[in-house]
Nucleic acid binder design. Sequence first.
DNA 1: CATGAATGAGCATTCATTCAT
DNA 2: TATGAATGAATGCTCATTCAT
Lengths: 215, 215, 215, 215
Amino acid sequence: MIRIATDKELSSNRSADRKAQIKKAALERFARNGFHQTKISDIVRDAGVSQGTFYLYFKSKEAVALEIIESGRKQLLEVIAQGYRSGTGTVADMQQASEALLAELFAYARDNRYFMELLLVGAGTDELLRGAIAETRTAMEEAFRRNIERAIELGMLPDTISTDVRAALLMGLIEGIVSRWLFGTSEAHASIAEKSPQELAAATARFEFFGLIGI
Amino acid sequence: MIRIATDKELSSNRSADRKAQIKKAALERFARNGFHQTKISDIVRDAGVSQGTFYLYFKSKEAVALEIIESGRKQLLEVIAQGYRSGTGTVADMQQASEALLAELFAYARDNRYFMELLLVGAGTDELLRGAIAETRTAMEEAFRRNIERAIELGMLPDTISTDVRAALLMGLIEGIVSRWLFGTSEAHASIAEKSPQELAAATARFEFFGLIGI
Amino acid sequence: MIRIATDKELSSNRSADRKAQIKKAALERFARNGFHQTKISDIVRDAGVSQGTFYLYFKSKEAVALEIIESGRKQLLEVIAQGYRSGTGTVADMQQASEALLAELFAYARDNRYFMELLLVGAGTDELLRGAIAETRTAMEEAFRRNIERAIELGMLPDTISTDVRAALLMGLIEGIVSRWLFGTSEAHASIAEKSPQELAAATARFEFFGLIGI
Amino acid sequence: MIRIATDKELSSNRSADRKAQIKKAALERFARNGFHQTKISDIVRDAGVSQGTFYLYFKSKEAVALEIIESGRKQLLEVIAQGYRSGTGTVADMQQASEALLAELFAYARDNRYFMELLLVGAGTDELLRGAIAETRTAMEEAFRRNIERAIELGMLPDTISTDVRAALLMGLIEGIVSRWLFGTSEAHASIAEKSPQELAAATARFEFFGLIGI
DNA sequence: CATGAATGAGCATTCATTCAT
DNA sequence: TATGAATGAATGCTCATTCAT
C-alpha cells in the first residue's frame, strides 16, 4: 500500500532536513577548523542555505555546537551501555566481552569521525563547549569505572590499585588509540590507521588486561 | 673577586629577562584561556611591558607560542632520554626502570603544568600550533616505541602485537593519566589529583606491564 | 427586520477588523518601544496574525505608522474644531470657552494615550514619521493661532506680542502639561498625574490668560 | 612670557582634542539622525579618525551619547543656577529677573543647538538615553519649581494653583518656544526663528507672568 | 486571503600589528 | 630599546520583506 505523505509531514521533514544539514555542515567545520575559526558564513555555504536560515534553526553558533555534542553524547553512551549487557565469567570471558564492546565503540568512532575529533582533539576553547565535551568524556569514564568495580566485586579482578586510577588509565588507553587511529599525524600512526575496529579492539583489550607483557 | 658586568651584558641580561617574562606570561595565558582567547594586551599586562615591546621580542602571537612549545619539547625529551640510560635485566627490572622514568616525567609535568596543559589539553586550533604540539607528542611516542623495540630485541617482551600499537597505547596511558591528574574535572579525578608522582608512576608502570589483571 | 449580511460584507468586515487590529497593536508598540525598536514580529504576535498577513494590509512598517498618525490627526483636529464653535464675549467667557476646549482635548489625550505618546514623546527618528508628526502638531498650533487672532480682532486680547509667538507659547503649554500628565517620569509629575482633565484644563486656562500671577 | 608646552601636555591635549572631536561629531549626528540611525562609521568619518580609535576613547556608542548628555546637563544647570542669584523685589523685578535668565538660557540653547535638539526633539528611543534625557529635563524643571516656591514664600506670587503644575506649565512654555525657535518646521515658526534671544525672552517672560492677556 | 519559511543586507565591536616619538 | 596611540579588517546576529504553497 502506498501512503501519500501529507503536506504537513513533507514540510516537517524538509524542516528537519534543513536543521540536520546545517548541523552536519557545522560539525564538519568545527572538527576541521575549530569552533572559533568556523564562520557562520562557512557553515551556511556548506549547507546551502542563507545566513538568516541558520538562525531560524539555531539560536547561536554556540547553540549548534552544544546540540551536536549532546547528540553525540547520547549515541556514544548508548553504544557503551549496550556493550555492558553481558554478564562475565572467567577473565577470558571478560576480555572477550571487553573486546566486543571496544569493537563497537571503535566502529562508532570510525562512522562519526568528526564528532570524535571534536571530542578527542578539541573544539578550541569556548568555555561552554569545553564543559560539554569534558562532561561527555567523564560520562564515558564513569561507565567504564562501573564495569571495573563490578568485576572486582565478582572477584574477577584483583583489588590492587584504585578503580579511579584504573578507569582513568583505561580511558586514556581508548582515547589515545582512537585519536591515533583516526587522526594520527606521524608515520607510526599510518600503520595503525590501516587496522580494522576488530583488530584494534583485540590489541586494546589484550593490553587492557595483560599490559605490555601480553601473556 | 667582584666583577662588574659590562653595559652590554647588563642590557643583554635585561633583554633576556624581558623575553623570558613575556614568554612566561604568554604560556600561562595560553594554557588557561587558549591561544585565540588570549590577547596580546593580556600578555603584556601580565608581563608588565607595553604592547610595542612585545613585538621587539617576538614577531607575532604565533611566534611566541611556537617558541614556548619548542622550549618545552626540548626539556621533555631530555627527561625521557635521561630516563632511558638504564640497561634492563628482568621484567621486574624493566618495570622498576619504567616506574623511575614515569616518576621523573610526572614530576616534570607537575612542575610545568602550563606547558603540559598546552600539550595535552590543547591550545585551540591554530594550524601551526597544532602541528608543533603534535610533533612534540610524536617525538615522545617515538622515544617510548624505541624502548619497547629494544626490550623485544632483548627477548624481555613477547612480540605479540605491533610496537606501533603498543607505543600508542602506552602514550595514551601516560597522556590520559597526566591529564586527569593535573587538569581533571570530574570527582573521580579528585582522588587522582592527590597522588604523588611516585604513586602515580607505580600504578601506571604496573598497568603498563600487567594490565588490569595487575598480577 | 433582520438583514443577512452578504459574504462580501462579512469578508470586508473581517478584513477591516484585521487591519484595525494590526493598527492597534502597532500603535501600542510604537508608543511604548519606538518605531525602530518595534519589530513586525512583535506587532503580528500582538495582533494574532502571521507575518505575511501584515503585508496584505500594509505596504511596509512605515506605512502602518503613517496611517496611524493620519487617523489620529483627523480625530484631534475634530476635537479642536468642535471646541471653537463658541462665540466669545468677555475675557471671562473666553477663559471659560478655552477651559472647555482644553478639557475635551485632555480627555481625548487620556483616551488615546498611545497616540499622544507617539505625537508628544516621539516615535524615534524616521524621517517620514517625524514629518507626519510635525505636520500634525503644526496643524494643531494653527488652529490655536486662528483663535487667538480672532480674539484680537474682536478686541478681547491686547495686540502686544506676535500671534505666532503667542500660539507657540500656548502649544508649548498644552504639550508640556499633557506630556507630564500622561507620561511624566519625575515625582513632581506624580501629583499632576492624579488630576482630572477638568482640573488640568482649569489650571492651564488660567495660566493661559493670566500667567503665573493668576489674578 | 612664552611657555613651552611639555611633551606630556601636548600629548594630553591631542588626546583630549581627539575625544572632543569624536564627541562633537557624534552629537551632531545623533541630533540630526537619531541615535540608532547613526553609525559609528558616520561618526568617525566626520571626526577624521578610524573606527578603532573611537573605541579607544569610548566604551560604546551608548557611552558617547551618555557623556554628551551629562556634559550638557551640567552646563545647562549652571546657566540656570547663575540666573537665580538675584533677590527679587516687586513683580516687575521678578519679570525682569526671569527675562534675564531666559535670555541666557536661550543664548545657551542657540549656541548648543545640537545638544538642545537631543534634549527637546529626542535621540530616538534607546532606554538609557531616554532616561538620561528625562533626568536632565526633570532637573531643569526642579530648578524652576524652586524659584516659584521662593516667590510664593516671599508673597510675590499668589498661591492659587499647585507649584508642580505651575512649574510644568513654565517648562512647557520654555521647551515649546525653544523647539520652535531652533527646530521649527512650519511657516509660522519662520517668524519666530528670526527673533533674538532677548526678544524671545521678553515675550516668554511676559507670558509667564501675565498670560495671553499680557497686560 | 493567509501563512511562515527563507532571505541577505546591514552594523557594533574586537584585537593583532604598526610606527612616530 | 621602549612606548602606546592609532589602525582597519573581520564577523556574529537581526529583522523587514518576499513568495511558494
